[in-house]
């Protein structure tokens, strides 16, 4: 599955009653911004490499957090990461992210399932961790 195929597949598909709004992010790397209907606030960024399809949602930046409660937040993020369906929590640069990685051989249905789940998980995560914002 490459970015072009994925763009075309998402453009006119629905999955579990959701539609997808796809926008390529300009730059050297092939990156898509996918907005899932009903979860528009948490756009999913998708990039395809040789070894995986990586889906990312930005949750919050380090400077948005209450520094005194940082280690408590980290502990909770680690704990919640395991039971959360399909998504995991991580950090890249200053961004705390929810992400999911799929095999590059995944089909459109699996990718759409991932996108919907990740966008919904991200909304739940933001609301769950709201108290840790500064």
């Amino acid at each position: 599955m490459d970015i072009q195929t994925l763009t075309l597949a998402l453009g006119d598909s629905t999955h579990a009653g959701r539609t997808f709004d796809v926008m390529p992010i300009v730059g050297e790397e092939p990156v898509l911004q996918v907005t899932v209907s009903g979860a528009e606030e948490t756009p999913v960024y998708v990039t395809v490499t040789d070894t995986q399809i990586l889906c990312l949602v930005y949750l919050f930046d380090e400077q948005e957090l209450n520094p005194e409660r940082l280690s408590e937040l980290h502990e909770n993020m680690l704990r919640i990461s395991v039971p959360m369906p399909l998504s995991a929590l991580g950090k890249t640069g200053d961004h705390y992210v929810a992400y999911g990685a799929l095999s590059p051989t995944s089909g459109a249905a699996e990718i759409m399932q991932e996108l919907v789940t990740l966008a919904e998980n991200s909304i739940d995560l933001l609301q769950t961790f709201e108290d840790y914002l500064a």
């Binding site: 992010i25 606030e41 960024y45 990039t47 948005e64 640069g93």
Partner: peptide, 26 residues
Amino acid sequence: RVLRTTAQIDTNINSQKSSLSTARET
């Protein structure tokens, strides 16, 4: 790849002048 991708997303969002919305706004 992840670093380059996130840098690209950040640059792109900043250039749209909508700037990356804060968690509170979201």
